[in-house]
Simulated scan of single mutants.
Amino acid sequence: MLNAILAAAALATAASPAIARNDDVRPMSNEAVAESRPMVDGFFQTLKAGDSAKAYADLFDGTLMATKTMEIQNLIAQTNFIFQTYGSITHWSLVKSDCISPNLCQTTYQVDTNNGPVIMLLTLYRRPSGWMPTTIYITDVTQGLFN
């Protein structure tokens, strides 16, 4: 009887949506990277040109984030501060991607500047019209990347 209760509890727990998840985190496919590249490269090219307001307006165009004026203003201020500190962008490259599904991925970009690397984490979602950003995080802290 105890074994039957334990087995039932184990099955109920395994079926729980809070616990049941796909642990197969995979990198973006080469096709997905190629599909998202025009959006990402356009963003970095505009940042490199020194127009972070336009870079974010273009990046978030047509998304719910475009309506979050305060958050975008904070991103612009943080981005301007980082690049005033580190200098101009010289290069960017995708260094890592983790996808929990073919349509939801977190990408890590190393953005090289005159005075060192800056890291940008972009969470991307593929909708029928193509890839779109859902979140973005910019930092100069790299220690968590090597775990």
Rank of each mutant, 00 (worst) to 15 (best):
M1W: 09
L2W: 08
N3F: 13
N3R: 13
I5L: 10
I5D: 11
I5K: 14
I5Y: 05
I5T: 15
L6F: 15
A7P: 05
A7I: 13
L11E: 15
A12N: 00
A12G: 08
T13E: 07
T13A: 11
A14T: 01
S16P: 04
P17T: 11
P17M: 05
I19G: 12
A20Q: 15
A20C: 07
R21T: 11
N22I: 11
N22R: 06
D23H: 12
D23S: 12
D24T: 14
R26D: 07
R26S: 14
R26K: 15
P27L: 08
N30F: 14
N30M: 11
E31S: 08
E31R: 06
E31K: 09
V33K: 10
V33C: 04
V33M: 10
E35W: 06
E35I: 00
E35V: 02
S36T: 06
R37Y: 15
P38N: 02
M39P: 01
G42Y: 03
F44L: 02
L47G: 06
L47Q: 05
G50V: 04
G50A: 01
D51R: 04
D51I: 05
A53H: 12
K54N: 11
Y56C: 03
A57M: 06
D58E: 11
D58C: 03
L59K: 06
D61F: 09
G62Y: 01
G62P: 00
G62C: 02
T63V: 00
M65L: 05
M65E: 07
T69F: 05
E71C: 04
E71V: 08
I72N: 04
Q73P: 00
N74W: 07
L75Q: 08
Q78R: 08
Q78I: 10
N80M: 11
I82D: 00
F83R: 00
Q84D: 15
T85A: 15
Y86M: 12
S88I: 08
T90C: 03
T90R: 13
T90D: 05
H91K: 14
H91W: 14
W92E: 11
S93Y: 04
L94R: 01
L94D: 02
V95T: 13
K96E: 10
S97D: 03
D98H: 07
C99H: 02
C99K: 06
P102W: 07
P102R: 07
P102L: 04
L104H: 08
Q106I: 09
T108V: 05
Y109T: 07
Q110M: 12
V111C: 01
V111E: 02
D112W: 07
N114Y: 07
P117M: 03
V118H: 02
I119R: 06
M120E: 13
L121K: 12
L121T: 09
T123W: 04
L124D: 06
Y125N: 15
P128Y: 02
S129D: 15
T135Y: 09
I136N: 11
I136K: 11
Y137R: 10
T139Q: 12
D140Y: 08
T142Y: 02
T142W: 03
G144L: 13
G144Y: 12
F146R: 13
N147I: 09
